[in-house]
Design a binder for these strands. Structure first.
Lengths: 203, 203
DNA sequence: CCTCCAGGTTAACGACCGCTAACCTCGCTG
DNA sequence: CAGCGAGGTTAGCGGTCGTTAACCTGGAGG
């Protein structure tokens, strides 16, 4: 939380590099020596900042889930009663896309290494994720009332899959451009939701 | 290929269980002893069937990519000039959905453990995947001519993300039902493609 | 100036893991 | 029935990895 303006670097450096490495080679595929080397220190020096390798992954995953949920709640509150549900959904989609484009390693970890956590941490992360999903489901059902609740939940998960596909889009900066990609993803997400309705604009 | 009618051989049993375990806990998170235990033999007995743990993953990934590509080519050929491009796209979507619903562990491995392969195997898998994507891109561009080629490719990757979200839908058989889920995914995929077009039915 | 602590270092331990070696035991087949 | 190969078994080696132990160092505070 105390990270946006200040720069108490080491810990955050470590987390950032660990996230990148975990996303690239998997949690079990990365050694602590590599993480250390990535931030200029070597090996067990990491244990001055974290009690263990597991703790790094836990902090990353809890942080991601929390950030997503917090951001979504903020967007929901900002719009409040004024703007329509459709605008809120657009805001949620925009926020998720920003995250997926900004922090690709994190979005990768988010649905890939969850099972490597201790039981307590995993439960916490899943709870945060569930709240995030439920928040989306409510908004989606308001915009598309023909959707049953299970259908809406499935649709939300599927759209997450669509939005989280950013790591597969371009190995390096091969994307057309950030703005264009974001717009494309946004349109597709809306189109997917719209088509999820039984009487929608499917075919 | 010699597996549909005959009883599953040891080799196929091993591959199936290995796929499940790799998907659940990651390639590096599963030991050969666990794979052996899952098929009733124990430990190094696996080496009577495979030269090593890497070889199992390689065979799985090559097999998946090949099956997907072969199936797509068959569907493209079956439709030939008779049916329209839109029907071919529907057929491709249907095939991918069947795969994603049938073999969830495989679809998970497919975009998760690719980097754990030896260079030669990884190149082969990537080549198969690229051909599969390009096949989709051509069909999609025929159905939605307003899409530029990069946009179509991004859209295809994103729809794969959407369709491959099946593992997140229900931990067990909590899905509404296979048919309903398949239909929902199909409509969403079509809706996403349609909305990808610049002047599409976005909002 | 002495102290102390945050933040490093290297050495090494213990566990685990992939794989090999050596051996066993069926069910064929000549 | 002898022989043998397919398909197992257990024991154990070598390497890697997470973690701990013991030690070092520079800068802030009394």
């Amino acid at each position: 939380m105390a990270s946006r303006t200040d720069a108490p670097t080491r810990r955050e450096q470590i987390l950032k590099e660990a996230a990148r490495l975990f996303a690239e080679r998997g949690f079990h595929g990365v050694g602590v020596d590599e993480i250390g080397a990535a931030v200029g220190i070597s090996g067990p020096g990491l244990y001055r900042h974290f009690p263990g390798k597991d703790a790094m992954l836990a902090e990353l995953l809890v942080g991601i889930s929390g950030q997503l949920l917090t951001g979504a709640r903020r967007r929901l509150a900002e719009a409040d009663g004024a703007t329509g549900a459709s605008a809120v959904l657009d805001s949620l989609i925009e926020g998720h896309i920003d995250f997926a484009l900004d922090d690709r390693p994190l979005i990768t970890l988010h649905d890939r290494e969850l099972d490597r956590l201790r039981d307590s941490d995993r439960k916490l992360v899943r709870q945060l994720q569930r709240q995030y999903v439920e928040l989306w489901v409510e908004v989606v059902r308001e915009v598309y009332p023909a959707l049953t609740e299970p259908a809406a939940r499935s649709a939300v998960h599927s759209v997450f899959g669509l939005l989280n596909s950013t790591p597969h889009l371009g190995r390096a900066g091969t994307l057309p451009s950030r703005g264009v990609t974001a717009e494309l993803l946004h349109r597709m997400a809306r189109g997917a939701f719209a088509a999820a309705e039984p009487g929608g604009a499917g075919d």
